[in-house]
């Protein structure tokens, strides 16, 4: 299972990641951060393919994606060339 980490203090709750994610892994939480933004959260971690679309569209660099090494690297489009 891959891991998506949200830096909640950096998140501005824009939710661009929620539409960028092809697997609907992310959704808005009920929590507010100290800036007053209602932050995003990982709702379905198991569905994550580590494509990193969320990390790359996040305008605030609040998302980091970790791929389990043993997992097949398919769908790894977002990786740097």
């Amino acid at each position: 299972m891959h891991h998506v980490l949200i830096n909640e203090e950096r998140c501005k709750g824009c939710l661009l990641c929620t539409v960028a994610c092809p697997k609907e892994v992310l959704e808005q939480s009920a929590r507010f951060n100290q800036q007053g933004y209602k932050v995003v959260e990982v709702a379905r971690q198991d569905d994550c393919t580590a494509c990193a679309a969320c990390a790359r569209i996040c305008p605030d660099f609040a998302i980091r994606v970790f791929r389990k090494k043993s997992a097949k690297p398919k769908g790894a489009k977002g990786e740097q060339a």
């Binding site: 501005k12 580590a50 990193a52 605030d60 660099f61 980091r64 994606v65 970790f66 791929r67 990786e79």
Partner: peptide, 24 residues
């Protein structure tokens, strides 16, 4: 055994940005 995908470039400063939510 996890590796980070799409790591942030080092030239980017690690600090919150002043841009509005959803600004590109």
């Amino acid at each position: 055994g996890y590796t980070e995908v799409a790591t942030l470039p080092e030239v980017l400063a690690d600090r919150p940005m002043h841009y509005c939510p959803g600004c590109h």
